[in-house]
Amino acid sequence: MKSVVIVFPGSNCDRDLAVAIRDVTGTAPIMLWHGETALPDGIGLIAVPGGFSYGDYLRSGAMAARSPVMRAVADAAGRGVPVLGICNGFQVLTEAGLLPGALMRNAGLNFVCRDVALTVANNQSIFTNRYDAGETVHFPVAHHDGNYTADAATLDRLEGEGRVAFHYAEAVNGSARNIAGILNDAGNVIGMMPHPERVIESAHGNVDGRRLFEGLLEAVA
């Protein structure tokens, strides 16, 4: 699977994500600088990593969402290319309009950095097909602005259409309805605050994140 990891000024999880993709797929992704205006041909996955793009100035993800490459990302997403946004990547995707809602400061205004339990809400997507519906998995989180919010109608629509991928099993950051990850209406774009790329080998403490990449590889292949 040919893939790209988008790199913004301030990205700090791009290498972690690249290593996870390489280890699972056997092929290292292309590290694509945000100033590029086009994606390489034949891309099967676009990954938007965590970090603090542009130092989180203005609003987390707001400046990165206006980077030249994001126009190409939006076009590719519209054609059905899978897009995975993790942590700051989730923030970028909401700011770019590829996912609904917004990520706000955590309740309590604290940076949250620990392993959390997640409940798999939808196991029918290309990103979650290796999990069981209702299964509990454990991923790390590390964010200050992970409080997902949207109006009630949007939240109802996300839940009613099965577009919530993961819920927090307990309150973590104040997110509406404990939402930890969502899908777009076509199911090929996911944004999530927890970090699956940090739990892909036993040395990480568990391998719950590995199945996300394995399932994605199988679906795309």
Rank of each mutant, 00 (worst) to 15 (best):
E36S: 15
E36F: 03
T37Q: 12
A38E: 14
A38M: 07
L39K: 11
D41E: 14
L45D: 13
I46P: 11
I46F: 04
A47T: 04
V48L: 07
P49A: 07
S53H: 02
D56R: 04
R59G: 08
M63E: 10
M63N: 05
R66F: 03
S67L: 09
S67P: 12
S67E: 13
V69W: 02
V69D: 05
A72M: 00
V73D: 08
A76Q: 05
A77S: 12
G78S: 05
G78W: 01
V81K: 08
V83K: 08
Q91F: 15
V92L: 06
E95L: 11
G97R: 02
L98M: 15
G101A: 13
A102M: 13
A102T: 15
A102D: 07
A107G: 12
N110H: 08
N110K: 12
F111H: 13
A117F: 01
L118S: 11
T119I: 11
T119Y: 00
V120L: 10
N122M: 01
I126G: 14
T128E: 09
T128Q: 07
Y131I: 04
Y131P: 12
G134E: 04
F139K: 06
P140Q: 01
G146N: 08
G146Q: 07
Y148D: 02
T149L: 10
A152W: 03
D156Q: 10
R157S: 14
L158Y: 03
G162V: 04
G162K: 02
A165Y: 04
H167F: 06
Y168K: 12
Y168M: 08
E170Q: 11
